[in-house]
Amino acid sequence: MTLLKVNNLSKKYAEKYAIKDISFEIEQGEFFTLIGPSGAGKTTLLRLIDLLEPPTSGQIEYNGWSLQTLPKKKIVHARREMGFVFQNPVVFSSTVKANVAYGLNFRKLSTDEIDERVQSALDMVGLRGFEERKALTLSGGEIQRVALARTLATEPNLLLLDEATADLDPTNVALIEKVLKKFNKEKEVTIVMATHNFFQAKRLGDSVGFLMEGEMIEIGTTDQIFNNPSDKRTEAFISGEMIY
């Protein structure tokens, strides 16, 4: 079943295209990685999908809903089905526990359910025992993990990750990748992960999209993109010839 359908999507900032006429589809339960050099438009694409910005033209369909024509109430509803972990996440000025509970409080869940989900999310990212710590005093890597736990706690159907493991040490990268795989395989959560680390894309993704200068150069299975790319630019990027 197609969960996400992007049709001729473009986004222009001051006459310059950040995203140019992109079209692709993602199936429910798919782990899709977006690779490309810095400034390729990966973050912009994720922001457009999460309705944080309107596109200049084109359409995004999520679960059959045309996101650009949704009324305000439905936009919140659609966003609540998604989760977004930013490249440079911020934490609210409260405890780790309160931070992880933020999205759950927005959904007005019961205290018991919030406590249960917060504990489970903190366990997943290896932050058990951090509940009462002030989030603003955490290190960059810990903040990244709090942000991930905060999003996972909302149990999204579509998880958008923007370089979500960029600030983590190898041990924590392995931990988070394991959590993501588990979420993807066991809970059938669809994941769109932007990364400029193509080894990570190779490890995790079912399919890969190569984005460059706002254009989707190539989309295919991970095996196809990394072993038999059809475009020379993709080949140059994955072979490390392209400087980024």
């Binding site: 944080l52 919140v76 977004f84 930013f86 996440p89 609210f92 999205g103 905060r150």
Partner: peptide, 24 residues
């Protein structure tokens, strides 16, 4: 500027966003 996107992506309604900003 700092919290808008995070609050919205966590599912905040407009009034919840305003309250979050006021709190911060």
């Amino acid at each position: 500027n700092k919290y808008r996107d995070t609050a919205l992506s966590l599912g905040a309604t407009e009034s919840q966003l305003w309250f979050t900003i006021l709190k911060e």
